[in-house]
Simulated assay, not measured.
Amino acid sequence: MKEAVVEARGLRKDFGPVKAVRDVSLAVDPAEIVAVVGESGSGKTTLGRIIVGLMRPSEGSVTVSDRPQMIFQDVFGSLNPAHDIGHHLRRAVIRSGRRVPDVDREVVTLLERVGLGERFVRRRPHELSGGERQRVGTARALASAPRLIVADEPVSMLDMSVRVEILNLMARLRDDEGVALLYITHDLVSARYLADRVVVMFAGYAVESAPAEELLDDPRHPYTRLLLASVPGSSLDPAPAAGTVQAGEAGCPFAARCPVAVAECGRTMPPVAPLATEPSPGRWLRCHVEGAPR
């Protein structure tokens, strides 16, 4: 049995009255890509920041095999325009604490690993395209030789052709170097293209998880079906009937929007229910109506 590179248990994060993350547990295995998907405000970015240690959870625990690194959506905002790319990467290598015989050579190696090269050492952030800056962000994350990288919407600001290049780069890091990734996105198409497994979040809860193709071919949670219905070309109903159940504080937060909700959905949040009859192990969801195995 593989030892997970990160395991989160019962995470909760409150910002005053706002419950950003609620009772989330997940694990990522070595060389696995797990996509966390959901609409804006679902809690997926907060979850990623907790995983890498940028935030402390209000409750729960995170166990990591080493210090994970993060790739941000806006890499340009995290690069000092007064310094060249070599400076940023040298700083990342030195701060990592790794013993390398030649820091400058290591910087070039990092650039080569992400498909750039030595000619970018003296470039400044404003001289790079969006895709090149995202590659630099990836190189900086690799400077500490992490086993896990958390990538927060890394392609949402890029053109479609460049998105595919960055997704392929992440896949190569998994396949060739054994790096695990937690890929945070609202884009189900890219999640299907890249991820081994998908976790769906809504209103702070993780509501469904399964191998990527299995989940996206046969979504079981009503919210997952709603997300997939919004994808161009989907055969699912893009506008399911609104629910009639009023969700209480302890109920499922999707109940008021859910077309299949029953009274119990407004009263209690369903527990995580494994779907033992599914073709792949480890599939589960939180739903009073759809949780029973078929």
Rank of each mutant, 00 (worst) to 15 (best):
L116Y: 12
R49A: 09
G266E: 05
L188R: 07
V108S: 07
E165P: 06
I149N: 03
F202K: 10
V150I: 05
R267F: 12
V150K: 03
T185D: 02
P68W: 03
H126L: 15
P293Y: 14
F254Y: 14
S280K: 11
F72D: 01
D66K: 00
L148G: 03
G137W: 11
A191W: 01
P274W: 13
F254T: 08
I149A: 08
D196L: 01
G48D: 00
L167D: 06
V34G: 03
P57D: 12
P293T: 15
V64N: 14
P146F: 12
L181C: 08
S209E: 11
I50L: 09
Y183A: 02
E249Y: 11
W284S: 04
S235A: 15
L285S: 06
R91W: 14
V189N: 10
R192C: 10
G117F: 02
C265E: 06
Q246S: 13
S78I: 11
A191L: 09
H126E: 11
S161P: 08
P279G: 10
A139N: 04
D14Y: 15
L181I: 12
V62G: 03
I33K: 08
A180P: 02
R197H: 02
Y205I: 09
L182C: 05
D218K: 09
M1S: 14
V28A: 06
L236D: 07
T63F: 13
P281R: 08
T63S: 14
V6I: 10
R12L: 14
F120C: 05
A203S: 15
P240E: 13
